Simulated scan of single mutants.
Amino acid sequence: MADLVVTSIAVDEAAEQLKSVLHELENMKELWDDGDLWGHRTVKNAMGDFVDSWWVKREKLQENLKDLQDKMEKAAETWNNTEIELEKSLTPES
C-alpha cells in the first residue's frame, strides 16, 4: 500500500477549494432569481419545488462547510508552520 503524502500545497489547495464551494453556495440566489433558466414550464415547476426545499438544506450545508473550511484553513496554517519549524530544526546553525 502506498504511503499518504501530504504537502503544504495540497492542504492550502483544499482550503481554497472549500472556500470556492462555500462562495458558490452563498451566491446561488442570484442564479435562481436571474430569469427563465429552465425553459419548459414543467421543468421550471419541478425545479421550483426542488429549490424551495433546497434553500433549507443549503443553509445547513453552508454552516457545515463554513466550519469545515475554517478548520481546513487552520490545519493548513498549522501544517505550514510545522514544516517551517521542522526545516529550521534540521538546518544546522551557521
Rank of each mutant, 00 (worst) to 15 (best):
D12G: 00
E87R: 01
E83R: 07
M1K: 10
K71M: 06
E59S: 10
E93C: 06
E93V: 09
F50M: 11
D12I: 05
Q69N: 03
M72D: 04
L65D: 10
D12P: 11
W54C: 13
E16V: 06
V21R: 02
V5W: 04
A2S: 15
E16A: 01
V51K: 08
V51D: 01
L61D: 00
S20R: 04
W38M: 13
S20Q: 05
W79N: 05
R58F: 02
Q62M: 13
R58H: 00
E83Y: 09
Q17E: 05
M72N: 06
S89F: 04
W79S: 05
D67H: 12
L37I: 06
E63F: 13
N45F: 02
S94P: 11
G48C: 03
E93D: 05
W79Q: 03
S8F: 02
M72V: 06
S8G: 07
V6Y: 04
E24K: 15
W79I: 05
T91W: 03
R41N: 02
M47N: 07
L31Q: 15
V21A: 11
K71Q: 14
N27E: 01
S20I: 02
D33G: 08
K60S: 09
K57R: 04
L22Q: 10
N64F: 00
D36Y: 00
K71H: 14
G35W: 05
L31Y: 15
S8T: 07
K57D: 08
I9P: 01
N45L: 07
L86R: 08
V56A: 15
V6N: 04
V43I: 15
E77S: 10
M28R: 12
K74A: 03
S53H: 15
T7K: 09
L86H: 00
H23M: 12
S53W: 10
E87C: 09
A46W: 02
L18M: 09
L65R: 14
E87W: 01
A14N: 07
M47D: 08
N27Q: 09
V11W: 06
D3M: 09
I9S: 06
T42I: 15
W79P: 01
D49C: 08
A76G: 11
A75W: 10
V6D: 06
M1W: 12
V56E: 15
D3F: 11
S53R: 13
N45C: 15
K66Q: 02
L18Q: 07
G48P: 00
A14Q: 13
N45M: 07
V5F: 13
L25C: 03
E30Y: 08
K74H: 11
A76Y: 03
A75L: 00
D34H: 13
Q17M: 15
R41S: 01
R58W: 13
A2W: 05
P92Y: 07
M28C: 14
S94R: 12
N45V: 14
A2F: 11
E24T: 14
A46L: 01
K88M: 00
Q62V: 14
K74I: 04
S8D: 09
T82L: 08
A75G: 06
Q17S: 09
W54S: 10
L22F: 09
